[in-house]
Design a protein around this nucleic acid. Structure first.
Lengths: 152, 152
DNA sequence: GCTAACAGGACCAAATTGGTCCTGTATGGC
DNA sequence: GCCATACAGGACCAATTTGGTCCTGTTAGC
């Protein structure tokens, strides 16, 4: 089902929570309590996000995490790739060209690659600010325009 | 990494192979040999594809599989959802609204849902015929148009 | 100096996935 | 009419991956 890993899903929720009140620093246990997610796992995800530069961390007493940039400068692609690594549909595409051991039967790579870039663009098009807004009239028509057809 | 399951990946390759010479019926072991994939697994995938109506099967001696429709009438979304079930990014979205147990911390659902539809559109935009063509000048500009922005 | 909180691991448990195999059934050829 | 071939539909096992927990530093405030 083209699954996003659960940790990546958590990451989006956590980032969204931090973005909701960006003036304050939030510590890991508070965020975990607010979101209802298991605290050690939340801590792990936050550490990864800080490591990738999406959050800034303040150590010591009264420490915590805050957004490194504005919410509109962080895309969902940033968050997902921070947790799950590079965004790729298949192992072939992830490992780069030539790494596919059954390449003889893979004329489909170009088509899949096309889909891959489309998905990446979709993730890059939505920022954390978009995600945080409750329900902004949902312009579903604009999500995937008719220009997306592969062969115009 | 937003992974497609390996079986779904196989399915695209197999369908592409069958589409390459659609006049003939292909049996499972031949397809497996041609693609270099493990035969029992290929058989399993083909059975699933036939069950979902993407392939028609002919039982008995000289039997095999053939495309149920033309290659341009089968989208990658059809193939993927035949193997992996409905296309959804998160468990929440897959299970429908209200099924999320941490819904209190999920104002992000609308944004993720937007991404979800974008990805589904991307998969629906590419047909098996597109995938089968070796490398059709690759109009990468047209893959994800600027109209895809969430907030125009 | 003490406590609170992050950093960075190691590590285990469990769920999912991928792969194999077996039995039945239908079909075509001899 | 019989037999070989090939799909149908399961059960089932193995292994990779993922999610979750915990422990030991280290830093910063009070």
């Amino acid at each position: 089902m083209i699954r996003l890993s659960r940790l990546a899903d958590y990451a989006v929720v956590l980032m969204s929570h931090v973005a909701a009140a960006k003036t304050e620093v939030h510590n890991a246990v508070d965020i975990a309590a607010a979101t209802g997610l298991p605290a050690p796992t939340v801590s792990k995800v936050l550490k990864a996000l800080a490591h990738r530069g999406l959050l800034v961390s303040q150590r010591g007493a009264r420490g915590g995490y805050a957004l490194a940039r504005g919410a509109h400068a962080i895309t969902v692609a940033d968050i997902v790739s921070a947790i799950d690594g590079p965004i790729a549909l298949t192992h072939c595409l992830k490992s780069g060209a030539g790494a596919c051991e059954v390449e003889q039967g893979c004329p489909s790579r170009s088509g899949l690659n096309r889909i891959n870039t489309a998905i990446r663009s979709a993730l890059e098009a939505v920022t954390l600010a978009d995600v945080s807004t409750p329900m902004p009239a949902l312009p579903s028509r604009a999500v995937a325009g008719p220009e997306m057809r592969a062969q115009p």
